[in-house]
């Protein structure tokens, strides 16, 4: 049995039909991960107990496999009466997992803002929330655009994990086709190429955004 291009082409539409799920999970996952990661980082800087709690939480998230975290939420939450759709559980787990990495990225981004920026904002009477929103966040985002983008691409590539908790996305459709036809090579190749293309496009986009930011006059 060798690779059959005709068969590969014939299953392409069926696999692509669930690309919206992949994109949805990626976009919501990235937004959730950035929001949570930023929250962790702000709490980490706010007080001593906050610092130790968040450091442990972030280290714990980063030191355990995404696969196990997904299983954990998928199988454990129902035990406490919280039964959520697989897609919701999956996006939640992706957000949480990548929030641990983004918190570290944000830490670096905030640390490289000069101390004078914090002092000037305080001297002008800005509140802590105003300082964070108007002075810290915008400058931090400029500093972290590249590494944050790389984690977003990484999150995209992690969306096929949702297949293991029965979310109908591209990998699960490919596996379904494989078990129907007993042909693995074509569906896996097709889904692999789609993801590779998406990942390369996304990282290209990240590079463009990064160089735009570097060229803008504001960076001076």
């Amino acid at each position: 049995m060798t690779f059959d291009p005709e068969f590969a082409l014939s299953i392409l539409p069926r696999i692509l039909s669930t690309i919206t799920t992949t994109l949805f999970a990626t976009i919501i996952g990235c937004m959730g991960a950035a929001a949570l990661g930023f929250l962790w980082e702000i709490v980490r800087r706010s007080s001593k107990p906050g610092r130790y709690t968040m450091r442990f939480l972030i280290d714990f998230i980063r030191s355990t496999p995404l696969l196990v975290q997904i299983y954990f939420f998928y199988f454990v939450l129902p035990e406490y009466g919280l039964t959520l759709p697989g897609l919701v559980v999956g996006v939640l787990a992706l957000s949480l997992y990548y929030s641990g990495y983004l918190a570290e990225v944000f830490k670096g981004g905030i640390d490289s803002i000069p101390a004078g920026q914090f002092e000037a904002a305080k001297a002008l009477g800005l509140s802590r929330l105003q300082l964070i929103m108007f002075v810290i966040a915008p400058q931090m985002l400029r500093n972290v655009a590249a590494p944050m983008g790389n984690y977003f691409v990484s999150l995209l590539k992690a969306t096929p994990y949702l297949a293991i908790i029965a979310v109908p996305e591209m990998l699960s459709v490919a596996l379904e086709i494989a078990s129907e036809t007993f042909r693995y090579t074509e569906p896996m190749t097709v889904v692999g190429i789609i993801f590779l293309t998406l990942a390369l496009c996304f990282s290209g986009l990240v590079k463009v955004i990064e160089s735009r930011l570097r060229l803008s006059p504001k960076a001076g």
């Binding site: 000069p114 920026q117 904002a121 400058q139 001076g220």
Partner: peptide, 13 residues
């Protein structure tokens, strides 16, 4: 109370 710093500390963004 207004304050002016040695290194200006304007917000670059």
């Amino acid at each position: 109370v207004g304050m002016v710093f040695q290194h200006f500390n304007l917000f670059p963004h």
